[in-house]
Design a binder for these strands. Structure first.
Lengths: 169, 169
DNA sequence: GCCAATCTCCTACTTTAGTATGAATTTTGT
DNA sequence: ACAAAATTCATACTAAAGTAGGAGATTGGC
């Protein structure tokens, strides 16, 4: 293990933190400026007596707006799915039974079979990673391993064989 | 058109408006309560001298949070249409026959269908090129074109859909 | 004849897929 | 408890798939 590698890792780590913190630093700065403005406003309003309520009101309104703004900046846009149904014919899934014999012959692990099911549904590695809460690396590992066990060389071959052997729906 | 129907429409309309306004009424009530709380806090804090800054600070923090909350409540979700294929079960013929109806719907050319068959057998582009005496470029063109017609984004999806629609063996 | 569709092929990319290797954890069977 | 198997993740590649755009032949039908 070179020290250079360790150093590079540390730097990468720091940069990541900085990037994450960048927005926070920005907000912090903005807030700092606001404190001065408010202090000035406070002084100005307090000259006129009994205007504290107005001052408080302005503060409240302003910070509410600030809050709204911060929220819109921070929250990812909500996505509402509108389901549009589209009729598609599919063949008898009611009779479908997994060919356990062929499946056991292949000696796949649970996870590998699980991944294979998604592969056979046309999922990309990224899709599978998201579905199973895995990293793409892990998905690739599983996929690669099941190719060896299935004796195929590509996704397409795996799908074809899996469907032919009836080891996936 | 019956009058009952008209009446029902009017009611539906009113209910909708009430439902929309309900949230606003709720927020209004909450704000009203807050005003009292703040007034009380203001009075309490002003007994101790020089604690105005703390008071202002609390107001600021509170209303920022309020703003964030309001924003999350108010932001309308972006609408995204997701086409979901509704499975319709059809009687399965014993021996395989190509679903000519679905095939024609896709409007594939002869060559595209021919290429699709090989894709569905797990052939790589190079394999297909060799089988049909084409260049890989041509195969890629056909494959790419049939993806558009089939409304899929990858080989795996094409295979899955082609098998499901029974437009390939 | 000619137009439109089809079929063919190309270059130049970008994006995914797939391989090899190593390694840290967690599960599991005995 | 301990070893083997399984699961997870990473880096660093190479290979294949996929996209975009253009362009020259061929062909069937009006």
């Amino acid at each position: 293990m070179g020290e250079t590698k360790e150093y590079a890792r540390a730097m990468t780590f720091l940069i990541k933190i900085f990037l994450k913190a960048r927005r926070i630093i920005l907000y912090g700065s903005v807030l700092a400026v606001l404190v001065f403005v408010l202090k000035w406003l406070q002084w100005k309003f307090l000259i006129v007596d009994n205007s504290l309520d107005i001052y408080i009101g302005l503060i409240a309104i302003f910070f509410t707006i600030l809050g709204v703004w911060v929220a819109t900046q921070l929250t990812k846009p909500k996505v509402e799915k509108v389901v549009v149904e589209k009729e598609v014919f599919i063949p008898q899934p009611e009779n479908f039974v997994i060919n356990q014999i062929e499946l056991e012959k292949l000696d796949l692990t649970n996870r590998e079979h699980e991944v294979l099911q998604l592969v056979a549904r046309g999922y990309s590695n990224a899709d599978i990673a998201e579905s199973l809460f895995l990293s793409i690396s892990t998905v690739k590992t599983h996929v690669s391993n099941l190719y060896v066990k299935m004796n195929v060389k590509s996704r397409a071959q795996a799908i074809e064989k899996a469907k032919r052997l009836r080891i996936v729906e």
